[in-house]
Simulated assay, not measured.
Amino acid sequence: MKNCVADGNTIDFTATADVASGAPVLLGKVLAVSLGNVVTGEVGVGVTEGVFELPKVTADDITQGGQVYIKADGMITSTASGNTLAGKAWADAPNPSDTVWVKVNA
């Protein structure tokens, strides 16, 4: 097929701040998880499909299958207002846990 430009599993991005390997990166409305450390101004690669353990707001009580959102600081939350959809919780992450498994972009 001549018009296929990418498989959609990864996306290149230019880091606007230093990014650690495994950190979430919000690209508009797409959540990517960085495959490696990326220095500000450099191009990195992020994964846009799959389930990842990501940092969450400790006080949130997130249940399996629930919608989750990403805050501007990269933390996952159950609060939609003012945040961007990140995907679905793959497992329960009760208060006071500090991570949650997220199926990104789901």
Rank of each mutant, 00 (worst) to 15 (best):
M1Y: 13
N3A: 06
N3R: 15
V5G: 09
A6N: 13
D7C: 12
D7W: 08
D7E: 02
G8T: 13
T10W: 07
I11G: 11
T14C: 09
T14H: 06
A15D: 03
A15G: 07
T16E: 07
T16F: 10
T16M: 08
A17L: 07
D18T: 04
D18K: 07
V19G: 01
A20E: 13
A20T: 13
A20F: 11
G22T: 06
A23F: 01
A23K: 02
V25R: 00
V25L: 04
V25Q: 03
V25N: 07
L26P: 04
G28C: 02
V30A: 05
V30T: 10
L31N: 05
L31A: 00
L31R: 03
S34T: 12
L35V: 08
G36W: 12
G36S: 10
N37V: 03
V38G: 03
T40C: 05
T40K: 09
G41P: 01
E42K: 10
E42G: 07
G44W: 00
V45L: 11
V45P: 04
V47K: 14
V47R: 09
T48D: 11
E49M: 15
E49I: 15
G50K: 02
G50D: 12
V51L: 08
V51N: 10
F52E: 13
L54S: 02
P55F: 05
P55S: 10
K56T: 07
T58G: 07
T58E: 15
D60L: 02
D60N: 14
D61E: 08
T63H: 13
Q64W: 14
Q64M: 14
G66I: 07
G66Y: 02
Q67S: 12
V68A: 06
Y69K: 00
Y69G: 00
K71T: 15
K71L: 12
D73V: 10
G74P: 11
G74Y: 01
M75T: 13
I76N: 00
I76V: 14
I76R: 00
I76C: 03
T77Q: 05
